[in-house]
Design a protein around this nucleic acid. Structure first.
Lengths: 222, 222
DNA sequence: ACTAGACTTCAACGGTCGTTCAATACAAGT
DNA sequence: ACTTGTATTGAACGACCGTTGAAGTCTAGT
């Protein structure tokens, strides 16, 4: 192998990431995970302390990388636009592009990771606390940037707009295959290029529409 | 009680709907469900034949009602606009409003049902087949209507646009509470009026933006 | 060579799961 | 009153779950 080696921890993280993404948390057993990873069952508890901590570790591993890259791009587009305010399209790009780039160029682990993120984002259980813990700081920074890029919009519209934005992203990353069925094969859920070409324009137009609606109905902030 | 009675089947459907929506399929046991419903454990298998068929029955029960109401409104807006083509806003309204109206005026069961829908929509497992079986026919009708309302748009843009649309809806129905946290209480996930005021404008603007993008890049259909 | 510590293996624990089945209760038809 | 079919009960089944602990292996440091 080209790589020097893969530690037991990494093997477990990779296998669990893949299986959790495919079947969810409760439907995946530790025996499946350790079987896929080729290690002993007890090693999950030795290295991570249990099933839930393993899940948390998966979320954090690539979450930290994603946050860093997102913030890096956000400051980049801000500097490029200075001293003028950055455009909503640029902010949205800084938010989406790291995901799309990782899907394009990085390994298949990122694919599983984003499917997993889509799963936990809509999971009604404890997973959301992990979600907040990992991503809230970065997300708040992006919401702030969106407000700056759309100074006419009410804060409520930005918050709700972010909600819609992340919902559209989430369902796309889940790759449900629904799109393939409904379009009779014309579109494919895993077509990153097609997603890249449309997701940004869609949500940018949506946010601008929301901002206009707020201004038109005269409920803009004082 | 005002209602004449509730059959065992209905008690089970209601209890399971509530618990599945809150914790997901695998994390909810039949013993919890029958306990909540106040009936014997074995009755699930007697009346429905198992846990999965129970889940399917939940999906179908209100799904049929929702489909009927959606199609009713779609034909209404089509007739109101005839002989001209219906606007995308009207199509989107016929798609969203039944959900929002049920949330407003119908019982709490609908609330659980839509949370459950959000859950199964992003569930990477067998649930999606049920989803397709229940909703695909109606959804195809709405996609056709969207194409008519945006004649300049490429079919691919409509399909992807529907994907984003339903993603935004799905995350909103899931009521993750994320919105409440991120906005420091300014917005509330369960504020149906706030959602109603923003979801339609957002996705309508997004779809129009997608259509313009397609036309601008010259890849519209011949 | 020996020891200390990190890592791995193996077998088993108690608990909960979905499902089954024989026995019982109930309601309606005759 | 008796029969028939539907509905309900209670107890139990085998399977699988996450977790644990004791024993074994491997790797450095001295």
């Amino acid at each position: 192998m080209a790589r020097p080696k893969r530690t037991t921890k990494e093997k477990l993280l990779d296998a669990a990431e893949k299986l959790f993404a495919r079947k969810g948390f409760h439907a995946t057993s530790l025996r499946e995970i350790t079987g896929e990873a080729g290690v002993d069952l007890a090693l999950v508890n030795y290295h991570f302390g249990g099933k839930k901590p393993l899940f948390a570790a998966i979320l954090e591993r690539r979450g930290a990388v994603l946050n860093e890259e997102r913030l890096r791009r956000l400051t980049a587009v801000r500097r490029a636009a200075a001293p003028q305010a950055v455009s909503p399209e640029a902010v949205i790009g800084a938010f989406f592009d790291p995901i799309l780039d990782f899907l394009d160029h990085a390994g298949p682990g990122w694919h599983s990771y984003f499917s997993l993120l889509a799963w936990v984002n809509n999971s009604p259980e404890w997973g959301r606390r992990l979600m907040s813990k990992t991503f809230d700081a970065t997300v708040r920074e992006f919401i702030r940037a969106l407000m700056e890029s759309l100074p006419g919009a009410a804060p409520e519209d930005i918050f709700w707009g972010y909600n819609f934005l992340t919902g559209a992203l989430t369902l796309s990353l889940a790759e449900t295959g629904r799109l393939d069925v409904l379009s009779d094969g014309l579109c494919r859920s895993n077509d990153v290029a097609a997603l890249r070409a449309r997701l940004g324009p869609f949500v940018a137009a949506g946010l601008r529409g929301l901002a206009q609606r707020g201004a038109r109905s005269g409920q803009a902030q004082s």
